[in-house]
């Protein structure tokens, strides 16, 4: 927490707060909703990128962790509110944080045994986990079972969603730039080589997995408190796949790529609404074309400013 951090963080928070006010006062709610959807999708895709992109593991259970976060947070504010104070911004913030921690714990429990598996096997285990979570929730009467949990205080604003998105981005950047991040990269490139270099692969994988599921839980809590209603069908396998699409489209291992992927996957279907029933035919078609043209994802392994810098140095070299 040096001076530079605050020099950037304070204006960013102030700007988000100002933007929150501006959006609520002057912009159509539907557009604001789509922007908020983007924020939640960004948190999900960035966090999944740590596991799928940076560490090269294939997880398909992100919706499961999101569900844990959403239900834990919603239960705290709706089913067992610890007094009316829990319905305030601070209370909801605490609830969302608890949701994230619960999801992180779930990530630890799932990750510990299953991260010894590789590739396809891990995908199946995480997929199974996501389904188990969904079915468990489906059978818990206290949170509404299949009927869902209505009446959640709608307190996640644009400000809170984007503050969390900024925190997610910051944390993930710092991790990738650290020794942990380099260990994860080596895992992705060649697990056996990494192990022979003395890297505790299981430890790093579990670490990445826990952090990733923590943020998925946060996204879930934010989602629940802005939707005002959660039900198990919102956390089906489809949502996990959607997040994987965002990551793969943006570029594996590129945090800014995940953000771009998340925005495209969220906004594009809204623009295609005029196509009516054919929307869900055209949207995948666009995805297919995109992946054929850029199989490494939009940004590949690079971050967006790396692309810009590259062009600039190219210009200099030409001049």
């Amino acid at each position: 927490m040096n001076k530079r951090f605050f020099l950037i963080a304070i204006p960013v928070v102030a700007a988000l707060y100002g933007l929150d006010y501006f959006l609520n006062e002057y912009i159509n709610e539907y557009v604001v909703r789509v922007i908020m959807n983007c924020g939640i999708a960004c948190i999900l895709s960035m966090s999944l990128n740590l596991v799928n992109g940076c560490a090269g593991q294939f997880s398909l259970g992100h919706a499961g962790f999101m569900a844990v976060g959403a239900y834990v947070a919603a239960t705290l504010t709706t089913v067992f509110p610890a007094g009316p104070s829990f319905q305030s911004h601070l209370g909801v913030g605490m609830a969302i944080l608890s949701g994230g921690i619960a999801a992180g714990l779930a990530g630890y429990l799932v990750g510990l045994p299953s991260l010894r598996l590789r590739g396809d096997y891990l995908a199946i285990v995480t997929l199974g986990f996501g389904e188990i979570i969904r079915i468990v929730i489906l059978n818990i009467e206290a949170v509404g079972g299949p009927r869902g949990l209505p009446g959640i205080p709608r307190l996640s604003s644009f400000f809170w969603i984007y503050v969390w998105a900024a925190i997610t981005g910051l944390v993930l950047f710092r991790i990738i730039r650290s020794s942990v991040g380099r260990a994860l990269l080596s895992l992705r490139e060649d697990e056996i080589a990494a192990e022979s270099m003395g890297i505790n692969t299981a430890k790093y994988k579990v670490q990445a997995f826990v952090i990733s599921s923590f943020f998925a839980g946060i996204a879930g809590g934010l989602f629940a408190h802005y939707q005002g209603f959660v039900d198990p069908s919102s956390f089906s396998f489809n949502r996990s796949v959607e997040v994987v699409i965002m990551v793969v489209m943006g570029g594996m291992g590129s945090i800014s790529g995940s953000v771009i992927g998340a925005i495209i996957v969220t906004v594009l279907p809204e623009f295609l609404r005029f196509l009516d029933k054919f929307r869900m035919v055209v949207f995948p078609l666009i995805l297919i074309i995109l992946m054929l043209l850029r199989p490494m994802g939009l940004l590949g392994h690079k971050e967006i400013w790396q692309l810009f810098r590259f062009k600039r140095s190219l210009k200099k070299a030409v001049a």
Partner: peptide, 19 residues
Amino acid sequence: DDQGRPDEAVTTVTKLITQ
């Protein structure tokens, strides 16, 4: 179309009302 998803239902109704 809400694709049978509650979150999509909320988005579409918001669009119907506000836009």
